[in-house]
């Protein structure tokens, strides 16, 4: 028998997906509600959610900086030019 997808109850995978979206502020209110409902009883979702939140917290705290992609492209070109000159 095929299960009808529930409106309210979600699978563990779906909960993880919503939890990922929450980290980027991209989950809707309804999604958050469904996630919270599952969080109230599923220890796997709870464990995943805890780690995921902690990861976001650490990344935010560390303020990891990256180079702009345009600049990286420029650096790549200069490096290639230098490389062909040195050959």
């Amino acid at each position: 028998m095929a299960y009808k997808k529930s409106v309210l109850f979600i699978s563990c995978d779906e909960a993880k997906h919503i939890c990922d979206k929450v980290q980027y502020g991209e989950a809707s209110g309804w999604e958050k509600f469904k996630l919270n409902l599952r969080l109230s009883w599923c220890r796997f979702t709870k464990a995943y959610s805890k780690r995921n939140n902690k990861l976001s917290e650490l990344v935010q705290k560390a303020e990891v900086k990256t180079l702009d992609n345009d600049l990286k492209n420029k650096m790549q070109k200069e490096l290639e030019r230098e490389l062909s000159n040195s050959k």
């Binding site: 900086k65 990256t66 180079l67 990286k72 650096m75 790549q76 490096l79 290639e80 490389l83």
Partner: peptide, 19 residues
Amino acid sequence: EPNKWIDRYADYLFNYTIT
């Protein structure tokens, strides 16, 4: 493999430096 340096290490080195 110098061709891959930017992709692989540019951000790592940049963050290392900026801190």
